[in-house]
Design a protein around this nucleic acid. Structure first.
Lengths: 215, 215
DNA sequence: AATATCTGAATGAATACACATTCATTTTTC
DNA sequence: GAAAAATGAATGTGTATTCATTCAGATATT
């Protein structure tokens, strides 16, 4: 009907449909309809249903990583980098809600193969964060006892959970900018106004495991 | 063969099987086999396959929330509470890997109904965190500009991502205790050793958006 | 206490159906 | 008018669910 680029039309349709129903509850027929294409046409461009999902991931994830890396190159201040990362991540999610939902939700399960494949791509993404941390440590800005391997997961996880909130509930209570600022600020400066009351490492080892409360 | 409690046997079997294959790729027959029960028997205890998933969630999530709340009651120091929460959360995940995987992975998708239901339960869980924050703010320990609604998600997200790491890769590079300490420490104290180079709010607005690098 | 009758939990083979995939036919392109 | 692209009805498969049947134990009958 239109011009062409069936491939692209199918991908876009699939993103929409998968996001709406979930992968397993999506019908090929529905994707075909959404793309204004016959059922069979899809099989001229993809091997099977699962192949569509993989392709979505492959084609889109690369763009994201590249785009984030590019933005980060605008500064060499690790603190700023963290905030930029947060902002970029959240912005991308906001701009591509359906895609974000698929990556977050649908790709979690799926076969062993996909899990491993996905993990490789994600490892690359997470490494951007740990590299920032290492850079900050070398420059004497960040504490040396911070473990980059844990930090990257914590930081990403914080952003990811914030995204989920947006993906699932359309009404955003907080803007992207606010969220990015808050989150990077938590991680950089912590939330303490003043030192906490002594960590009670000395006494008070009174765990008192209640043995009652059975069943 | 054994005694009985078919209900419990089926639930435990389903947790194992769902975790192994994912909900949609799990066969009722496989669950039946794992539970040493005939296929049909499952339908004496559950309405359908989906009902098993819901029951898993309902029966197990309550226990978790209760258990965390109980542990928190052992102190009234908000800082400690955060660390306890982190430790409890991660410990529970470690002790119930299969269950954790199901809650993390399988329940994300699933029907609208489940999504909403799940969210209600999770809201309760997340609120534990925001309550700690508010308490800390009232006591003058935490900064007032920290938004509890963002913090709870960030903190939970950090833990959740850390868990995923454990759930998916069996070899733990970091122990529960280390991870809990690090994460709560990030959030309480931040990762800064010394103030970052001026946030460039004044001069140096040299963002220099590279217009090259096209495609 | 031996035998007959009942009960409902458990079984698993048979059913029913949804849907991914195929392919003979039609339409478009050059 | 040949080749390529697209179609969508028909096919085949996989599996959730059903239900007629079994059978172990309880209860009643002699």
């Amino acid at each position: 009907m239109k011009v062409a680029d069936k491939h692209g039309r199918i991908i876009q349709a699939a993103i929409k449909v998968f996001a709406r129903n979930g992968f397993f509850n999506s019908r090929i027929a529905e994707i075909a309809k959404e793309a204004n294409v016959a059922d069979g046409t899809i099989y001229l461009y993809f091997n099977n249903k699962y192949d569509i999902l993989i392709t979505i991931f492959e084609e889109e994830m690369g763009k994201i990583i590249a785009s984030v890396k590019q933005e980060l190159a605008t500064t060499d201040n690790p603190c700023e980098k963290l905030e930029i990362f947060a902002f970029q991540h959240l912005s991308l999610v906001e701009k591509n809600k359906d895609l974000a939902e698929i990556i977050q939700v649908e790709l979690r399960q799926s076969s062993k193969f996909m899990k491993e494949y996905r993990n490789r791509k994600f490892a690359e993404y997470l490494q951007i964060i740990s590299n920032i941390v290492k850079e900050g440590q070398e420059k004497g800005l960040f504490r040396k006892d911070v473990m980059p391997g844990i930090f990257k997961r914590a930081f990403f996880g914080a952003l990811d959970e914030m995204s989920r909130f947006w993906v699932l509930s359309p009404k955003k209570k907080y803007g992207v900018k606010t969220a990015a600022k808050q989150i990077s600020h938590f991680f950089l400066n912590g939330i303490l106004e003043q030192p906490c009351p002594t960590k009670t490492k000395t006494k008070k080892r009174k765990i008192k495991r209640t043995k009652s409360a059975r069943k």
